[in-house]
Amino acid sequence: MSSFPLAVLGAALLAGCTPSLNWREVGLPPTGAAALLPCKPDHAQRSVPLGGVPTELAVSGCEAGGATFALMAARLPAGRAPDEVLAGWQQATLANMQAGGEVRRSDFRPPRGLPLAHAQRLAAEGRQAGGQPVAAQAAWTARAAEGGGTELLHAVMYAPRPQPEAADAFFAGIRWP
Rank of each mutant, 00 (worst) to 15 (best):
M1G: 14
M1V: 11
M1F: 07
S2K: 07
S2A: 15
F4V: 15
F4T: 12
P5G: 14
L6W: 07
V8L: 15
L9H: 06
A11W: 12
L14V: 14
A15V: 02
C17F: 15
N22Q: 14
W23M: 11
V26F: 08
G27D: 10
G27M: 09
T31A: 09
G32N: 03
A33D: 02
A33S: 08
A33M: 09
A34E: 04
L37E: 06
C39H: 07
K40G: 15
D42R: 12
H43K: 05
Q45Y: 00
V48P: 00
L50V: 08
G51N: 05
V53D: 04
P54Y: 06
G61S: 10
G61P: 09
C62W: 12
G65C: 15
G65D: 11
T68I: 10
T68M: 13
T68Y: 06
L71N: 09
M72R: 13
A73M: 07
A73Y: 02
L76V: 01
P77V: 05
A78S: 15
R80M: 13
L86E: 07
Q90M: 08
Q90F: 08
Q90A: 12
Q91S: 11
Q91G: 10
A92S: 12
L94C: 10
M97E: 00
M97W: 08
M97I: 15
Q98G: 11
A99S: 14
G100S: 14
G100A: 14
E102H: 06
V103Y: 09
V103E: 07
D107K: 05
D107S: 13
D107W: 00
D107F: 03
P111K: 03
P111V: 04
L114R: 06
P115W: 00
L116I: 12
H118C: 11
H118K: 03
A119N: 04
Q120E: 11
Q120D: 05
L122A: 15
A123G: 10
R127C: 07
R127F: 13
Q128V: 01
G131C: 12
Q132N: 13
P133W: 05
A139F: 06
R143L: 04
A144N: 07
A145K: 06
A145N: 09
G147I: 01
G149H: 02
T150K: 02
L153I: 14
H154W: 03
V156L: 15
M157N: 06
Y158V: 05
P160I: 06
P162C: 10
P162Q: 11
P164F: 13
F170Q: 03
F171D: 03
A172E: 00
G173L: 11
R175I: 01
W176T: 01
